[in-house]
């Protein structure tokens, strides 16, 4: 029996509110209280909720720890938090505040041993490695840091494989070319990842229609789809997506 494919609403949070950056750096709009939205997505059938803290530094994150604690009191699906994690202690404080999984991005590229250490202490299933990738003109993908501002020269697929081998429980991979466009996920990228690693991959970036979600969970071989703007804008509910997927024969939790 295959596991249900997951639909994961993602909430970018800053200063205690949800924001969704379009194309990472162009205009933003405020989409509401993170805890209320997370509880709403639980009621709609969301399979997990991801919070990404986009504040600039760890010191600004006390509001986020508070959001996690409140979310854990009201939301009864797994909660993942990411943003600014550069040390085992950051993982610990997020887990203590109420997160079930912690996502690490830049911190893992700068110190890959952080993956091994965190997986050993807290278990692989609590550690999600988030990777932002951009297509290279010459083929393949490159890893970008700081929310997509800084190129690294690192090959995206090589880094994905290394993160898996170091103990990541899941990968959350965002195509920066697709993110915010609503033109569909980068199918080639997600297929390549699924053929490469033996852990679940959460596909992110590009959902504009329900068919895009279906496409990445079938042809794209992703285990889960991260979805933001089309849910936050009210264009579709999670249940709309689940109904659509079920009708297409994709195993989903209803």
């Amino acid at each position: 029996m295959p596991l249900a494919r997951r639909i994961i609403p993602c909430l970018d949070i800053k200063n205690g509110r949800v924001v969704k950056n379009v194309n990472f750096h162009h205009g933003t709009w405020d989409a509401g209280d993170p805890v209320e939205l997370a509880a709403m997505y639980d009621r709609q059938g969301g399979d997990e909720v991801v919070f990404l803290d986009i504040n600039a530094s760890w010191e600004q994150r006390s509001a986020t720890l508070d959001i996690l604690t409140r979310a854990a009191e009201q939301v009864f699906i797994p909660l993942t938090i990411g943003g600014g994690v550069t040390a085992v202690e950051h993982v610990r404080s997020y887990l203590r505040a109420g997160a079930d999984k912690v996502s690490i991005n830049t911190g893992a590229v700068k110190d890959p041993d952080l993956i091994n250490q965190s997986a050993e202490i807290f278990g692989s299933s609590t550690i999600v490695i988030a990777i932002d990738m951009k297509r290279r003109p010459t083929g393949g993908w490159e890893v970008y840091l700081q929310g997509g501002r800084t190129p690294t020269g690192i090959d995206g697929l090589k880094w994905a494989e290394e993160a898996w081998r170091r103990g990541a429980g899941e990968l959350l991979v965002t195509s920066m070319d697709a993110d915010g466009t609503r033109n569909g996920y980068d199918m080639e990228l997600h297929q390549a990842l699924a053929n490469l690693v033996d852990i679940p991959v959460i596909a992110s970036g590009g959902a504009g229609t329900l068919d895009h979600i279906a496409e990445v969970l079938t042809t794209g071989k992703a285990d889960a789809a991260l979805v933001a703007s089309i849910f936050h804008s009210g264009q579709y509910t999670v249940d709309d997506a689940k109904q659509y997927l079920a009708a297409k024969g994709v195993p989903v939790r209803r």
Binding site: M1, L3, A4, R6, S124, S125, G169, E170, P200, D223
Partner: peptide, 10 residues
Amino acid sequence: VKLPQIGWNL
């Protein structure tokens, strides 16, 4: 199968 089993199953 992939271990651990992480996710929603019947």
